[in-house]
């Protein structure tokens, strides 16, 4: 199953990764190879019930009490930031 260049570009954009011309070709080819594995998976699993949700078996998710745990001291948090202004993270202007 061949993967269109436009598709590769769309996916790369969703993932916010830049690909040059070479990489687009390479990724398209490699993805195609791997997906040929997957295509076998598609036909194998065609016999499986389409409504089967194996992910909802088991016990209920863990819960915790609604009790405050002291937050991280802000100096520690903001010291990790590549760019900051006061205690806020700073980013290039967001255009709505």
């Amino acid at each position: 199953m061949a993967i269109e260049v436009e598709e590769v570009k769309r996916i790369a954009k969703l993932a916010h990764i830049k690909l040059n011309e070479d990489e687009i070709t390479k990724f398209a080819k490699q993805t195609q190879q791997i997906l040929e594995f997957f295509d076998e998976l598609k036909t194998q699993s065609d016999s499986l019930d389409k409504n089967w949700r194996p992910d909802i078996l088991g016990k209920s998710t863990l819960e915790r009490e609604d009790i405050v745990i002291p937050p991280t001291p802000v100096e520690k948090t903001i010291s990790l930031a590549p760019e900051k202004s006061g205690s806020a993270f700073q980013v290039p202007k967001i255009i709505e």
């Binding site: 915790r64 009790i67 405050v68 745990i69 937050p71 991280t72 802000v74 948090t77 006061g86 205690s87």
Partner: peptide
């Protein structure tokens, strides 16, 4: 997470 939800704190003071 256990961070407090109270309103009006300075930026990033209620984070973990």
């Amino acid at each position: 997470c256990g961070c407090p939800t109270q309103f009006g704190e300075l930026p990033n003071h209620n984070t973990c």
